[in-house]
């Protein structure tokens, strides 16, 4: 085994042990309640145990792969896109002055939106919730459509969150305004979609999204003069968990509007 393979092997073993440690308390709680309180064997215990082995192995490979391939690249990109040299290079600079307008960071916003969208599409927890929702709704909620809606919300949220760090405007203004929009949408939305929309806010920010988005926030806050990475670097995750709530309710509204319209059009055709 050469050095690179040895490194990968060690990394995989270390991650496997780490994942085991993470799910040990969960297994302990499940076992404890299963044996002490429920006192009944679940159906197919062998299959469930096999499922846990799959989850453990899958999550380990997933994390190792992310840490080997994606996180170093994503973090390096976030750093390079927010570095003064890059912003000079693109915009020609201001005679050595650092870029001082919010629109000088054009590529940062594009990157923020693109990385927010694409990491959310790959988020395993979101896939799980979307599968469940499709099954329970009897197919009236489409798993793929739901995930696209959530990913779009995260994209807008992370881009807007980057704009906030660049301009240095206070975080609570944005979040409180977001809450107001969510409340207005809740009143108008179908009662079926509201709980799922609220849940999708929490599931988006997980294994894939958090490290890359946090690196972006930290990079931005440490480059821009007057921002402190410790204080202004926070907040992107909050944006990424608030905006999907809005986009999912909007998606459900749009989907039912289109269905309604199609039904009406279909009806007219029948008459003629």
């Amino acid at each position: 085994m050469d050095a690179a393979n040895q490194g990968l092997f060690d990394h995989t073993i270390a991650t496997f042990i780490g994942t085991m440690a993470d799910i040990a308390p969960i297994i302990a709680i499940l076992f404890g309640f299963q044996f002490l309180v429920i006192r009944k064997r679940p159906p197919n215990p062998g299959k469930i145990a096999g499922g846990f082995v799959y989850v453990l192995t899958g999550l380990t490979l997933f994390l190792v792969g992310l840490e080997e391939a994606l996180f170093p690249l994503g973090e390096a990109m976030a750093k390079q896109l927010t570095a003064p040299e890059f912003i000079y290079g693109v915009w020609g600079g201001y005679g050595g002055e650092f870029a001082s307008h919010w629109y000088d960071y054009f590529w940062v916003y594009v990157f923020a939106a693109a990385i927010g969208f694409s990491t959310t599409v790959a988020e395993p927890a979101l896939i799980a919730v979307a599968l469940k929702a499709e099954k329970i709704s009897g197919g009236s909620i489409n798993a793929f459509g739901l995930r696209m809606a959530v990913a779009f919300g995260v994209a807008v949220g992370v881009a807007l969150g980057s704009f906030r760090i660049v301009t240095g405007t206070p975080l609570p203004y944005y979040i409180i305004a977001g809450y107001v929009v969510v409340i207005v949408q809740t009143v108008r939305a179908s009662k079926m979609i509201v709980p799922l929309a609220y849940d999708s806010g929490g599931v988006t920010t997980s294994t894939v999204t958090v490290p890359v988005v946090a690196a972006l926030g930290l990079g931005l806050a440490s480059t821009i003069p007057g921002r402190s990475p410790l204080i202004d670097g926070f907040g992107l995750i909050a944006f990424a968990s608030l905006f999907p709530i809005m986009s999912v309710m909007a998606y459900a509204g749009a989907a039912s509007w289109i269905r309604e319209r199609r039904r009406k059009l279909g009806g007219e055709n029948d008459v003629s």
């Binding site: 990968l8 679940p42 159906p43 197919n44 299959k47 469930i48 145990a49 096999g50 499922g51 846990f52 082995v53 799959y54 989850v55 453990l56 192995t57 899958g58 999550l59 380990t60 490979l61 997933f62 994390l63 190792v64 792969g65 992310l66 840490e67 080997e68 391939a69 994606l70 790959a122 395993p124 896939i127 799980a128 599968l131 469940k132």
Partner: peptide
């Protein structure tokens, strides 16, 4: 290599989800 790991890992995780965690 990392991407292949991610790909296999995600597929295994979702398989395990349907077999173990959900039931």
């Amino acid at each position: 290599v990392g991407l292949v790991f991610v790909l296999l890992g995600l597929a295994l995780f979702i398989q395990g989800l349907e077999m173990g965690l959900f039931p």
